[in-house]
Simulated assay, not measured.
Amino acid sequence: MSEALLNLEAPLRLGAFVGILALMALWELASPQRRHEIPRLIRWSNNLAMVAIDTLVVRLVFPVLAVGLASLGMQNGWGLSHLFDWPYWLIAVIAFVLLDLAIYLQHVLFHAVPALWRLHRMHHADLEFDVTTGVRFHPLEILLSMLIKFAVIVAIGAPPEAVLLFEVVLSATSLFNHGNIRLPAPVDRVLRWFIVTPDMHRVHHSVIPEETNSNYGFNLPWWDRLLGTYRAAPKGGQRGMTIGLERFRTRRDLWLDKLLLQPFRGDRD
């Protein structure tokens, strides 16, 4: 089963990514929540180029990825899950939930620690909020995130099936909750009890620091509510709020070279 999963991982993840990216792009055209002020060509070309760089860097640095590591752990009896005689499906569900909690806590950490924020702020410096914002992360942040995820997978003893499902779902929900789409208010109100919605996550991309430091969830919305970081709506409203950071507000800051150098830029750069 593990070997089959390893063979399935790359095409499944790529197919889900491309399909959901295309679907969200069409949805944004059909029913946008906010007007675009910056040409999509500028933002999309640079944001998607960052995805290509991130993917290449990860492949070059890590000889094995998350599902492969989980398979090794399963073969060698690594992790806490091997201490309990529980049904396999239950261990998989618990692993999925714990992985999501770890991503939430990591996100909080990347906001709280100044050195980590310098890596993460590139994601927040996008001047608009749409599906490509959900894939705009600095390669150094991606590498560090992978190391944290690997540590959690090994510590939990996560089944490879749970890890593969988590990887696909996390990628899909990141594209979804960064979408510039309009959901009817009643639908959004119900949906955000089960998944992070675009209106919920958009608050996190507000220029107001109190709003930036809220709604950290990417997938499951419960952690924000349970741990006191939930904010229902931005002060300026979904269409009136300002996206981004006080710094890095020129269109030149949206280009790939500026994005790659951003963690190393000082306050006067």
Rank of each mutant, 00 (worst) to 15 (best):
S2W: 06
S2R: 10
E3S: 10
E3Y: 13
A4K: 11
L6R: 13
E9N: 02
P11Q: 00
R13S: 01
L14I: 15
L14Y: 08
A16H: 10
G19N: 07
I20W: 13
I20F: 06
I20A: 05
L26T: 09
E28P: 07
L29F: 14
Q33T: 13
Q33P: 00
R35P: 15
I38M: 02
I38T: 08
P39R: 13
R43I: 00
W44H: 12
W44S: 11
N47T: 08
L48W: 05
M50A: 09
M50L: 15
L60T: 00
V61I: 05
V61A: 10
F62K: 03
P63S: 11
V67N: 07
V67S: 00
L72T: 01
G73Y: 06
G77I: 04
S81Q: 06
D85A: 15
D85F: 13
D85H: 13
W86T: 12
P87R: 04
V93E: 02
V97A: 14
L98Y: 10
L101A: 13
Y104K: 04
Y104H: 03
H111Y: 04
A112D: 14
V113W: 00
L116H: 02
H120A: 02
R121M: 13
R121E: 14
H123I: 05
E128D: 15
F129V: 09
D130L: 11
D130E: 05
V131P: 09
V131N: 10
V131K: 06
G134T: 09
L140R: 06
E141F: 14
I142P: 15
I142E: 04
L143G: 08
L144N: 09
S145W: 07
I148T: 13
F150H: 03
I153A: 02
V154C: 08
A155Y: 07
A155C: 03
G157Q: 14
P159S: 11
P160F: 00
E161H: 11
E161F: 09
A162W: 10
L165F: 10
F166Y: 15
V168E: 05
L170A: 12
A172R: 06
T173W: 04
S174H: 02
S174F: 06
F176Q: 01
H178C: 00
N180Y: 04
I181E: 01
R182A: 14
L183K: 00
L183E: 06
P184V: 00
A185H: 02
P186E: 02
D188C: 07
R189Y: 12
V190H: 10
L191V: 08
V196D: 09
P198A: 07
P198I: 15
M200Y: 02
R202Q: 13
H204W: 11
H205V: 03
H205T: 03
P209K: 04
E211G: 12
T212N: 04
T212Y: 02
T212L: 03
N213K: 15
N219E: 08
T229H: 07
Y230I: 14
R231D: 02
A232Q: 14
G237K: 05
G237N: 05
Q238G: 14
Q238V: 12
R239C: 05
R239G: 11
G240S: 05
T242F: 09
I243R: 04
L245E: 08
F248D: 07
R249N: 10
R249I: 13
T250Y: 06
R251L: 15
D253F: 08
L254M: 15
W255K: 14
L256W: 01
D257K: 10
K258S: 06
K258H: 13
L260H: 00
L260A: 00
Q262G: 04
G266E: 03
D267G: 10
D269C: 06
